[in-house]
Design a binder for these strands. Structure first.
Length: 430
RNA sequence: GCCGCCGUAGCUCAGUAGGUAGAGCACUCGGCUGUUAACCGAGCGGUCGUCGGUUCAAAUCCGACCAGCGGCGCCA
């Protein structure tokens, strides 16, 4: 058995080959039948003629439908008339399943394609995205392994909220009300005291009723936490991580990016270091950029988009005022009280926030005061408080939305296409 | 949660003085020896989202409901 990729590489030219796959396109003209077959490595045109196979067989092959499964055997030759430049001349075949029809035809609406996502994932577009996604997941892990981090895991069924404003998915846990994790951050902080540098890739669940092309209710969250790291140390790892992931994708998935019509030059630009802007600096730029925000206003989605157009790389926005971050765990900058040692990373081309991170409060007194100010019960956070009670150290961390990263890298319209089975406010199937 | 949009064949859509619905694709049958999401001919295909109202008559006008999409807020 051979792969279609081998044929396209030219290594099978003039030889006998057997490929197995699915009908991608089929055209017949009575005594000739062209079947374009796909497998996970590509597509290739095969041709059957009445002359060599006889009446019955050409009829059977001509009657195949899109996505019918089969194997074919024959000699491979170069042929300019075939789309990929190669063609297999069928001398024998076996049909595994002939479909009556296939629901996907040339006109397709986004909604319909989501209903039949389980089939649409076979498309060349989705296949390309999923190959890139695979590279991104691997590259993220590789980067942090290479930097001396350990991979670890937190629970997905939890009894404490992480984020301030985020809504939780409630769950009945043998009579106790618990929820699905919104972040693994607090658990990474626990593991950080044991392993110093840790990362995880896990789903996070948000019950926010967001109806936008950049939100999922279940998304893949890549998070890291490092002991002894200040805010700036963390950002340095992050920018190199983003650069590494994009270089890996450019290296391994150029073909897929081109299939998605991605402008490669936009990605080739992405080299560390990334620009950093304090929130206060950003506000000073506002008039110049024609935006009406002033100090103390939160950055909306429109502003984020407007900011990223001034950069051809991702940009870090740091030192948000305490008042506009709903989270309690960020450490205040002792040098600029009222501002937090935190950062967001905004992806270019209007894609916006893909990372949120910062230095964590590590002083016990400070943490207790913050919990009080946010009306949180220290009892609920007893183990998080314990981390500051026993051998606390400065540390920082971040969370990256992997689906958002893939959305940007692939240049997609909606984040839903960055994940195989998107879960949105109104979609739980397939 | 707020604002906006949509629902007609399996899919994409058209359908105004309100008069019982149409095209392309898919599928079936036939034709074609070099096709590139081929082409030609024929066929199959509909509770016009649901319920109610106006009317002699509703896909069309009115109301409610249901489903979906986009944007904001919130975030990754």
């Amino acid at each position: 058995m051979n792969r279609i990729g081998e044929i396209l590489s030219g290594s099978l030219t003039g030889k006998q080959a057997e490929i197995r796959g699915w009908v991608y396109r089929i055209r017949s003209s009575g005594s000739l039948c062209f079947i374009v077959i796909r497998d996970s490595s590509g597509i290739v045109q095969t041709v059957a003629s009445k002359e060599s196979l006889g009446d019955m067989k050409i009829k059977e092959l001509s009657g195949l439908t899109i996505e019918s499964s089969l194997s074919v055997t024959g000699v491979v030759k170069e042929d300019k008339r075939s789309a990929g430049g190669y063609e297999l001349q069928i001398s024998d075949y076996r049909i595994f399943q002939r479909n009556d029809n296939y629901p996907i035809t040339k006109d397709k609406g986004e909604e319909f394609l989501l209903d039949i996502r389980h089939l649409w994932l076979r498309s060349r577009e989705m296949t390309s995205i999923m190959k890139i996604r695979s590279t991104v997941f691997r590259a993220f892990s590789d980067f942090f392994y290479n930097e001396g981090y350990y991979q670890t895991q937190g629970p997905m069924m939890v009894s404490t909220a992480t984020e301030g404003g985020s809504t939780l998915f409630k769950l009945d846990f043998f009579g106790e009300e618990i929820s699905l994790a919104q972040s693994s951050q607090f658990y990474l902080e626990v593991m950080m005291f044991a392993l110093e540098k840790v990362f995880t890739i896990a789903p996070s669940f948000r019950a926010e009723k967001s109806r936008t092309r950049r939100h999922l209710t279940e998304y893949w969250h890549a998070e890291a936490e490092a002991a002894w790291y200040a805010n700036e140390d963390m950002m340095r790892d992050e920018e190199r991580m983003i650069e590494y992931i994009i270089r890996e994708v450019l290296e391994r998935n150029k073909e897929e990016l081109l299939m998605l019509k991605r402008d490669l030059s936009k990605l080739e630009n992405i080299r560390a270091p990334f620009p950093r802007m304090r929130y206060s600096e950003l506000m000073q730029k506002m008039p110049e950029w024609g935006l009406g925000l002033k100090y103390g206003d939160d950055l909306g989605a429109d502003e984020e988009r407007a900011i990223t157009v001034h950069f051809d790389k991702p940009v870090f926005v740091t030192h948000y005022p305490v008042a506009i971050k709903p989270t309690f765990y960020h450490r205040e900058d002792p040098e600029t009280p009222g501002e937090l040692l935190c950062h967001d990373l905004l992806a270019p081309e209007g894609y916006g926030e893909i990372i949120g991170g910062g230095e964590r409060i590590w002083n016990l007194k400070e943490l207790k005061e913050k919990l009080k100010r946010y009306n949180l019960n220290p009892e609920d956070y007893y183990w998080y408080v314990d981390l500051r009670t026993y051998g606390s150290v400065p540390h920082s961390g971040f969370g990256l939305g992997l689906d958002r990263l893939i959305w940007w890298i692939c240049g997609l319209d909606t984040i839903r296409d960055a994940i195989p089975f998107p879960r949105t406010i109104r979609r739980t199937r397939p």
